[in-house]
Design a binder for these strands. Sequence first.
DNA 1: GTGGTCTAGACCACT
DNA 2: GTGGTCTAGACCACG
Lengths: 137, 137, 137, 137
Amino acid sequence: MWLKVDPRLNTPMYLQIVNGIKEQIARGIWQPGQRLLTVRELAADISVNYNTVAKAYQELERENVIELIQGRGTYVSVLTEIPNAIVRKGELREAIKKWFVEAHYLQLSKQDVFELFNEVLCEWCKSEEANRNEFGG
Amino acid sequence: MWLKVDPRLNTPMYLQIVNGIKEQIARGIWQPGQRLLTVRELAADISVNYNTVAKAYQELERENVIELIQGRGTYVSVLTEIPNAIVRKGELREAIKKWFVEAHYLQLSKQDVFELFNEVLCEWCKSEEANRNEFGG
Amino acid sequence: MWLKVDPRLNTPMYLQIVNGIKEQIARGIWQPGQRLLTVRELAADISVNYNTVAKAYQELERENVIELIQGRGTYVSVLTEIPNAIVRKGELREAIKKWFVEAHYLQLSKQDVFELFNEVLCEWCKSEEANRNEFGG
Amino acid sequence: MWLKVDPRLNTPMYLQIVNGIKEQIARGIWQPGQRLLTVRELAADISVNYNTVAKAYQELERENVIELIQGRGTYVSVLTEIPNAIVRKGELREAIKKWFVEAHYLQLSKQDVFELFNEVLCEWCKSEEANRNEFGG
DNA sequence: GTGGTCTAGACCACT
DNA sequence: GTGGTCTAGACCACG
């Protein structure tokens, strides 16, 4: 499982793991129902303390991203209901606003902003495509 | 000075102040060279300790957003050079990727994200316009 | 950890700590990657408040001299890139000019300044050597 | 009187004036016994408050650099005795040591350090020469 | 037990 | 009255 974590970053390691796994699932690298690495395996894989990975998995379960089943393992959830959808959409909005503030201080024009957005969008779509072909084909 | 800070949020209060002021300046509510509230005034205004505001102002100075002058007050900087431009542009890219991850869990399509992006962009442009008319007209 | 701070000096204590640690690292007393004293330990050691040391450490992190890691401790950075190299080299020049001014008022000749410079340089090289032998041998 | 002061710098304005005048005298731009600008003149010249210049002149008098004579004006002192010579020589030494620390973080070699020193030395000697010819010839 | 934040209140240097 | 520093002590999040 490819996943990079850096203890020196400001974001705590357990959140780096959370974000990393969420991103991989969102990209389609892990399909709903599929079995993930065990806590111990992942901990060994990325050279991180067992407790840190355990905390990350608990957080992922709290967000309904994965399901921890005693004695069986960890599985990617099947998306059904979306908890706190309105709150979270508001946060997304805030994040975008904050992003514009940063862009302003980098003296990016509206044009630049648009291009950056499109670039990342394209890159994302391609990786989704790739994973669809690999798993779904 | 309108500025809301919430001690219950995860982001520390001094950073909320930093972000709030950066946003106001980016929107043109405060013009370069203009004098901001004093540390004590702002602290009283938003019911926060003097030191917390001082820390926020020092962080803003570090980012070249404002200038703290002993015995005189605090002034909005004139934007000139942009330190760490490359690093920070990379962070902007990362931020966009995170939106897509979040959007996936909100079952928003790429289209939805794009519309949200445009919405915030429009709202931003309007507020910029408004401030330009007020100060520059 | 030998480090003297004097509250009576004009330079604030947190900066005395910053300078002291920078000097020790520059001399090779602390090697890259090595763990420093914790904030609380150093504070107790030099009889200074926790917050003062914390401020010093944060300033050192800002200058890429050390790395603060949540819940783990503080580590000496591995030197890589040098931010603001041009600006800071200019400051070095300014500093030398100030020596000559001061020397003039101490009625020291250019020759005297040069000798003083050499003296300090030699002393510096010796201490570097000593630390290299101790750690690298 | 050419003298640049910047309120945004960390060094207080009155000290910038002090240092500037000391440098000019050390370079020989002002000769011992010569009459300096009045406080009011200098204040007007460099667009600074009267009190700030007054404070600078008082500091200069305290250091025996100039002499304020009631109703007559301000004159460059004739260097005679050197107060605190030992202490100040120690401070100069400290300054040089601190300078090496900075140079280390800029990854300057001993060679670089030497060249920088020589460069500034040459530039200084030339300017001294120039002033000697102008005033002393 | 690590660093990070916040408060309350004091004192200092600068303009 | 401006910003800057320092203390003492508390609480939190992280590993």
